[in-house]
Computed example of a mutant assay.
Amino acid sequence: MSLPKFAPAAQSFHTELKKRITSYFEEVGKSQTGNYNLFLKAVILMVGFVFIYIHLVFFTPAAIWAILESVLLGCLVAAIGFNVMHDGAHGSFSKYRWVNSLAAFSLNILGGNSFMWNMKHNVVHHAYTNVAGIDDDIDIQPWMRMTQEQKRYRLHRYQHLYFWMLYCVLYIFWIFVLDYQKYFKSKVGAMPLKKMSLADHFVFWGFKLFHGFLFVFLPIYMVGWYDWMISFIIFTMVAGFVLSMVFQLAHTVEQTAFPVADAETGKMEDEWAIHQIKTTANFATNNPVVSWLVGGLNFQIEHHLFPKISHVHYPAISKIIRQACKEYGLVYIEYPRVRYAVASHVAFLRHMGKK
């Protein structure tokens, strides 16, 4: 399908927002990238990950501790993805480009591929959020139906009951299946991949092998097949579920929209920034623990409008964006508690599963 175009605006909402956000940073005299609090958090998460990994693989803890540490390892993988890799991939972790590249590169060590992620997330998802047939994040067919445009199968009437099982296998499916599909098909959904350089190919295969050694072959050698399998399943399922829930709560809830381009002109109804407001939701923004753990991705509206700004600034700029939405008559979608957002996601899935 051809890519849709966003409607031009005489008085652009996005232009006004950028003006206000720029003024804010000039007034407070802060950089738009990360600060020492973010760097300290990154160190804590990565040191914690290395410590748990070494203890599990080389010191073989008792069964109950191995299970608890496997759960914690899954949470740490998700947290590193949210806080370090994600900001780095958007160029907002640091004002230094090489530091951002290093932060984004952490995904390769954890089993993903930074090249594929950049195409899937930064290029496609952020440009065409919730647009069926283009946004790969809402394409879970045939297992789940996420928009009215997607074909409904009989099993979808139960998707609000079995969704958690699919979310649990996301991480393991991502690193062992989805990246390879994109690589060999040279596509992210309907979008062709940009040409990979020799270095990109080397990184893809080199770090897939390195991840296999680090998380499969070495642990099996050290602790045995059975103990490795139990631990590996636990940690990947926890990571997959946490990663899935955080991203799904941001876009697939009852109030978010799934706009469709005009069939004749190929144009979307709204300008890009308004499209982001309508397709994105926040949750638990007054909970500092949630914000710390998910890397500010509970401020998803702010992130989609200003991905180049680090998540440490989202609480401050959210006030500016909320006020602008009020002035322009736009609904600022927000759920005050995580459980409310989860309930809305389940209700959304139930609705999409009906005839």
Rank of each mutant, 00 (worst) to 15 (best):
F241K: 03
G29N: 05
Y328H: 06
V77I: 11
R322F: 04
F210N: 14
V188G: 01
L38G: 04
A127F: 08
L198A: 13
A190W: 09
I175P: 11
I220E: 11
L45V: 12
A79L: 15
L198N: 10
N130V: 11
Y171E: 03
V123W: 14
N83Q: 10
M245D: 04
A263G: 10
L38V: 08
N83D: 09
F232H: 10
S291V: 09
P259M: 06
H55E: 15
I138S: 13
S114N: 09
H275C: 08
Q181G: 15
N37D: 09
D136V: 11
P219Q: 04
I109S: 02
E334H: 09
T236P: 00
A273T: 12
H14E: 09
E264A: 10
L166D: 00
G296I: 11
Y328L: 13
H313F: 09
S70R: 02
V77T: 08
V242E: 00
V223A: 05
L330S: 05
T60F: 15
F58C: 12
T285P: 05
E271Y: 03
T279V: 14
I320D: 08
M116E: 15
F176L: 12
Q323L: 09
L349T: 00
L56M: 14
R154K: 14
N113L: 05
T279S: 10
T60G: 13
L218A: 15
P259N: 01
H55C: 08
S31H: 03
F215D: 07
S94Q: 15
Q300N: 07
E327M: 04
K18G: 14
I64K: 07
A324P: 07
S2G: 07
K208V: 10
I21M: 04
P219I: 09
T280I: 03
I321S: 07
F241M: 05
I21D: 12
T285H: 07
Y314S: 07
A343L: 03
N113D: 13
S2T: 15
A341T: 01
N286Q: 14
Y53A: 00
A63L: 10
I234R: 00
K354R: 07
R152M: 07
K5S: 10
Y328M: 09
T129K: 01
H121Q: 09
Y314I: 13
S2E: 13
V242D: 00
F217T: 15
F184R: 02
D139G: 04
Q148G: 11
K355C: 06
K326R: 08
Q32Y: 11
